[in-house]
Write a protein that binds this DNA or RNA. Structure first.
Lengths: 233, 233
DNA sequence: CGCTAATTTGAGTGACTTCAAGCACAGTGG
DNA sequence: CCACTGTGCTTGAAGTCACTCAAATTAGCG
């Protein structure tokens, strides 16, 4: 982690990255820019640990952050990834609780840090902003509940295909149809909730069926419609 | 469903049942009482359907409501139960989306209906209330994520024990240690995410181990500590 | 420094095991 | 009397273990 002298302005970023902060007015955006901090993080760094105290939350300016919980036998369960414009850790800030997941850098990142008090001030001053924050949380909750249903009812094969589509929705493809997020097989298994070996075998199956191509860790999604069918999605 | 002439006042209920509305002031509570409706529902009635429009949300005055999603093969996945003082359906109201689960009456209920506009008015007028609403949603989100981790990593036996403990936390025991919510084996299986037969077998196992007693659908929790151990909870 | 050697890490495969789902059917109690 | 509970049996999906292979990192050393 490295502190920055140059701090990117929020008023620009908010609109470019479609962040929650676009619901703030100019004054509030200035306040935000003034009160926040900004740091560089390298891949593998931990931003905050599950169970630790947090006294503020983060907004991703550049990079990707992996959020995961640790199960009782040490296995990580990936909850979600945060990319440009998304905020992480605000749940613990709001509830005043310990962090309920670990945040680890997946791709070198630039994160802005916003102190707890600033968040509360903004919520109190701007009802529109707080409604949008509520909507955001509700959306995440809806996704979480949908995933519970899937993980409880679908086969590993279906879930894997679905996870690929969820990643597609979040990160998109490049011009060659490569998924714009690169994960190890183990990380994939920690989203799907299965063994690494199963992911390896099932990816091969999807390749056999011409739905994807495998180039090391980079995955090319050839047939989105076909994947949807496999995933019942 | 049956409309009521007598409508319970919110200012009393809010405090007695520790509902989210205790963060409203007297005027706002009066407004709420004035603008809400109130209906009786019988066991098995559907309050709203997954995928349907909702133009308001509900607060449980008496009874228990079961919230569940329907998987792609028609299996229900129970998301949570709402009891006295809890609100349901506000997520769809906030996001303006279709309901993402079905609400069905588990025990005869008295539900108060609050129109969308009233909710938004209260959020706009009362920052404290909206913060508490945010906290509530965050808490639910945290629970959902924890459950994802469990369902992905734990065995059915562990999950069943855990579900019993979750139900204990939500509904408590009577003086004879009977769980204060009565579910069919199928409903239990639709929380745990398993087959009905597995629940039956595993409940028997827990009985063998003297952790619970089975009296038809009523379950007596004999050894909470033991259950925690089984559940790794 | 640069160039192997040594070690680690992740991907992939096969053999085996096991947990839990599914099916069929019997019992029972609301 | 029908929906729910309970049991035995079978099967299959997926987990576990043990191992190989390739690539990437790090260490060692002239």
């Amino acid at each position: 982690m490295k502190s920055l002298e140059y701090i990117p302005a929020c008023n620009q970023c908010a609109y470019e990255n479609n962040s929650i902060f676009r619901f703030l007015n100019d004054d509030q955006l200035s306040l935000l820019s003034y009160e926040k901090g900004c740091n560089l993080y390298k891949k593998g760094n931990v931003v905050y640990h599950e169970g630790g105290r947090v006294n503020g939350f983060y907004c991703v300016n550049i990079g990707i952050v992996k959020l995961y919980k640790t199960g009782y036998e040490g296995r990580e369960q990936i909850i979600r990834f945060a990319k440009q414009g998304e905020i992480i850790g605000f749940r613990s800030v709001l509830s005043g609780d310990f962090a309920c997941h670990t945040a680890r850098i997946l791709e070198d990142s630039l994160l802005c840090f916003i102190p707890t008090e600033t968040l509360f001030e903004l919520i109190r001053k701007n009802a529109e902003f707080s409604i949008e924050l509520l909507k955001l949380t509700c959306r995440e909750l809806g996704e979480a509940n949908a995933f519970i249903t899937d993980i409880a009812q679908k086969t590993v094969r279906e879930r894997l295909a679905e996870v690929l589509l969820i990643l597609y929705n979040g990160f998109g493809l490049d011009e060659e149809k490569f998924l714009q997020i690169v994960l190890t097989r183990e990380e994939l298994s920690n989203i799907v909730g299965t063994a690494t070996e199963s992911v390896i075998r099932l990816l091969s199956e999807l390749k056999e069926d011409k739905l994807i191509e495998i180039h090391g860790r980079r995955l090319k999604l050839l047939d989105l419609r076909g994947l949807k069918k496999v995933a019942n999605y």
